[in-house]
């Protein structure tokens, strides 16, 4: 009886995590897409060079970061996926929206500085132990950092 109850609880947890997790994810994607459209006018590039050398007013480091974690249901799926190998779609979308969010936050700071372009943008991804840091490598939680040099041109 007790085991049945445990299995039941497990299924309920997974179902709730699945429902809430997919709502959170789709809402996040909607907001990301909206904000990306809003700041399309600010180019972000990974190159060093800038053409208008004499026309620069100021340059500043800008960065944006986000800590993002995968939901319980997807973690369960990932464990199953490990048997067969292949793409871990759950983690792909996690890292994708993390990166886009980090860029957006960096862009927001650049816009506050009235920058015209962000040069040499770089990403860093740090796995954070999360709650299962007992097993290293089994990270459910990532910090994603995007940073670059915001350049403001003389108008």
């Amino acid at each position: 009886m007790e085991q049945l109850l445990q299995i039941f609880l497990f299924i309920v947890t997974i179902a709730v995590a699945y429902a809430l997790g997919s709502i959170v994810e789709s809402e996040h994607y909607v907001s990301i897409e909206k904000r990306e459209k809003d700041c399309l006018s600010l180019p972000v590039v990974t190159s060093y060079k800038i053409e208008e050398k004499d026309n620069i007013l100021e340059a500043r480091l800008v960065y944006g970061s986000v800590v993002i974690s995968v939901d319980y249901f997807k973690r369960f799926l990932a464990v199953l996926r490990n048997f067969t190998g292949g793409r871990l779609t759950a983690y792909e979308s996690l890292l994708d929206r993390g990166r886009r969010e980090a860029i957006l936050r960096m862009k927001k700071k650049a816009q506050e500085l009235k920058a015209d372009i962000v040069l040499n943008m770089r990403f860093e991804t740090f796995p954070i132990g999360g709650l299962s840091s007992a097993q290293p490598g089994a990270s459910n939680c990532f910090e994603i950092l995007a940073y670059g040099t915001a350049v403001r041109l003389k108008s």
Binding site: A17, G21, E25, S65, V67, S69, G130
Partner: peptide
Amino acid sequence: AAGLKNMIGGELKGYTKLLE
């Protein structure tokens, strides 16, 4: 708080601020 948030996924604001 992060432990609870970990269940449904998404951003862990407490950690973001800490690292910031």
